Amino acid sequence: MTLQLGYIGLTIAICVWLIVIGFNTIDKSFAPDRAKKKKLLLVASLIIWQLYIYLVSVSGFIKTLEFPPRFVLMMILPSFVFTGIFIYQNRKNDWILNIIPSRLFFFQSFRILVETLFAASVAAGILHKEASIHGYNYDMIYAFTIPAIGVLIFVLNYLNLKVARAWNYLGLLVIASIIFVFQTTVYAPHLYGASEPLMPLEALTYPYVLIAGFLMPVAVFIHVLSIVQLNRIIKMNQ
């Protein structure tokens, strides 16, 4: 129960932080009447997303390791498509510049908690060790670099924004590697010396699906948003 509450608690905390950043940006970017509608849309979108994840997971539809991977098709793919469309359509809008760049960068520190939950899930038998820091998941190492690199860039001004942009790309590569590890442990377990899929089916139930269904897509969204923002700022300063 404690582990489950950890997943749910982290999800709630991230939703609250997204709302705080969103509300602050909306207030800076839109007139009061329009800002109110934007805020309602943001909150409603997060609630609907959470309800969707819950309903799909409790239905049992994604609790299978058959190919094609239903979990990827029902949760990860839609979130990636949304990120691509939303960021592309808004890439030139001024509201992007109204977000404090350091907030987007330091946001990725939450992945330390994600990987801590992963480690606890391995100990509980919910996940296999290859998907955590004990195996081939190096996200915790990356997450621990965020505060240090962030201070060097945004506090001490020792490094420039191009480093922040590069670190965002690195973060996306790390997430891509994690997705590769998860998929290969299911569909190519021989790479890890196993003859059967290593993913326990319980990992495809609620609330454990919140990591790949919500928290990981949020990390990707923030990375892409930060890259677009930094590209504009760097270009403006040239």
Rank of each mutant, 00 (worst) to 15 (best):
L5K: 05
L5A: 09
L5T: 05
G6M: 08
G9A: 12
I12W: 10
A13N: 01
V16H: 05
V16L: 14
I19H: 08
V20P: 02
I21T: 02
G22V: 05
F23G: 00
T25S: 11
T25Q: 12
K28S: 13
K28G: 07
S29Q: 09
S29F: 09
A31Y: 11
P32N: 00
P32L: 00
P32D: 00
L42Y: 12
S45A: 14
L51P: 13
Y52L: 07
I53A: 07
I53N: 05
L55F: 15
S57K: 01
G60Q: 06
I62R: 01
F67D: 11
P68H: 09
P69N: 14
V72W: 11
L77V: 15
F80P: 00
F82E: 06
I85R: 00
I87L: 13
R91E: 05
N93F: 09
N98S: 05
I99G: 07
I99M: 13
I100V: 10
S102Y: 14
S102Q: 14
S102L: 06
F106I: 03
R111D: 13
V114E: 07
V114P: 04
E115L: 04
E115P: 10
A119C: 02
I126N: 07
H128D: 02
K129Q: 07
E130F: 09
E130H: 08
A131Q: 02
I133G: 06
N137Y: 11
Y138P: 10
D139G: 04
M140F: 15
F144K: 00
T145K: 02
P147S: 04
P147M: 02
A148C: 05
I149Q: 04
I149S: 04
F154I: 03
F154H: 06
F154W: 10
V155Q: 03
N157I: 01
N157P: 09
Y158L: 13
Y158F: 14
L159F: 14
L161N: 05
K162V: 02
R165C: 03
A166T: 03
A166K: 07
Y169V: 13
L170N: 02
L170F: 15
L170E: 05
L172A: 04
L172C: 01
L173Q: 01
V174E: 05
I178W: 01
I179E: 15
I179P: 04
I179N: 09
F180W: 12
T185C: 02
A188P: 10
P189A: 02
H190Y: 13
L191R: 06
Y192A: 06
E196Y: 12
M199Q: 10
L201C: 07
A203V: 07
Y206D: 05
Y206I: 02
Y208F: 12
L210S: 03
I211V: 14
G213P: 08
L215P: 03
L215S: 02
M216F: 12
V218N: 03
V220C: 05
I222S: 05
H223T: 08
S226L: 10
I227S: 07
V228K: 03
L230Y: 12
L230F: 14
L230W: 09
I233T: 04
I234S: 09
K235T: 12
M236D: 13
